[in-house]
């Protein structure tokens, strides 16, 4: 019996198992057995990847940087969703706030998601830092540390930051573009009341990460099966809709520069230790 490729994933909602069951079943049917191992947080999963307990990790962008850091660049990003590429976050303000530029945020309160959320905290704070605004010095930071360790995947802190803006307790908040679109569509956001003040540079989100020593033939075989998943297959479509993608693409690391800059400037890993 062929040993399964072990793929790690962080879960916060049990419904995620439906996604992974569909992927697992397809791989087994394609004679490329895989199994999943679930973790409660990214730190544990990165440790497991580095220790060789799993072969592949479905990493958040921050977990990717952590894996790179822990392995001294000894890992590769082998695949990602089409929707992981070129994401942006928006800095949102109330239309009636009189805030028209980033500099107008001086002396104001900015709400963010959890401290380890790339999209709702780390990258937006870096954009403000680039504009000469330092948290705690030039503006007050109101951070919503919900489910720290899950790197903002659950959106809870990001949504609380938005609510804080809506309640008038904060003057700005940071929101991932996909959430901004969804929240306007489902009525969470009234576009007549809130508007985009600034947008971050594009960045990439999750990727499948392997250690450098993951065998090339195993990687090739695994990717061939992954890339055969197609939106035109109803079973795959169910998974892809839940996971938010139309197709799997090769991994790339060019989209993590601004997060790497943010992590360094904000001493994230030093403070996390």
């Amino acid at each position: 019996m062929q040993s399964p490729v072990l793929v790690g994933a962080v879960v916060y909602d049990p419904k995620v198992v439906v996604i992974w069951d569909i992927i697992k079943e397809f791989f087994i049917n394609e004679n490329c057995p895989m199994d999943y191992v679930f973790y409660s947080n990214y730190e544990l999963m990165v440790e497991a990847l580095v220790a060789g307990h799993i072969h592949i990790a479905w990493n958040s962008p921050l977990a990717w940087l952590e894996a790179e850091h822990e392995t001294a660049n000894g890992c590769r990003a082998i695949a990602m969703r089409d929707t992981d590429r070129d994401r942006v976050s928006h800095i949102i303000v109330r239309r009636d706030s009189g805030i028209n530029s980033l500099d107008d945020l001086r002396g104001k309160t900015v709400a963010t998601g959890a401290k380890d959320s790339p999209q709702a905290t780390l990258i937006p704070l870096q954009v403000l830092w680039r504009a000469g605004l330092e948290a705690g010095k030039d503006f007050s930071l109101r951070r919503f540390d919900l489910l720290v360790g899950k790197h903002g995947d659950h959106v809870g802190g990001e949504l609380e930051a938005l609510r804080s803006l809506q309640r008038g307790e904060s003057d700005a908040c940071a929101v991932l573009d996909l959430n901004w679109t969804n929240w306007q569509a489902d009525g969470t956001v009234d576009p007549a009341k809130l508007t985009v003040l600034a947008t971050t540079p594009p960045f990439d989100h999750c990727n499948f990460t392997v250690r450098q020593d993951f065998p090339e033939d195993a990687e090739k075989r695994w990717l061939e099966v992954l890339f055969r998943m197609t939106y035109s297959n109803p079973a795959h479509r169910e998974m892809m809709d839940m996971e938010g993608l139309k197709e799997w693409l090769p991994g790339r690391v060019s989209g993590y520069a601004i997060l790497a800059e943010a992590v360094k400037a904000q001493h994230f890993f030093e403070e996390a230790v």
Binding site: P14, V17, F38, Y39, S40, N41, A48
Partner: peptide
Amino acid sequence: NSLALLGVIGE
């Protein structure tokens, strides 16, 4: 804890 049912490590 439903995540314990799934064997989520760290839960």
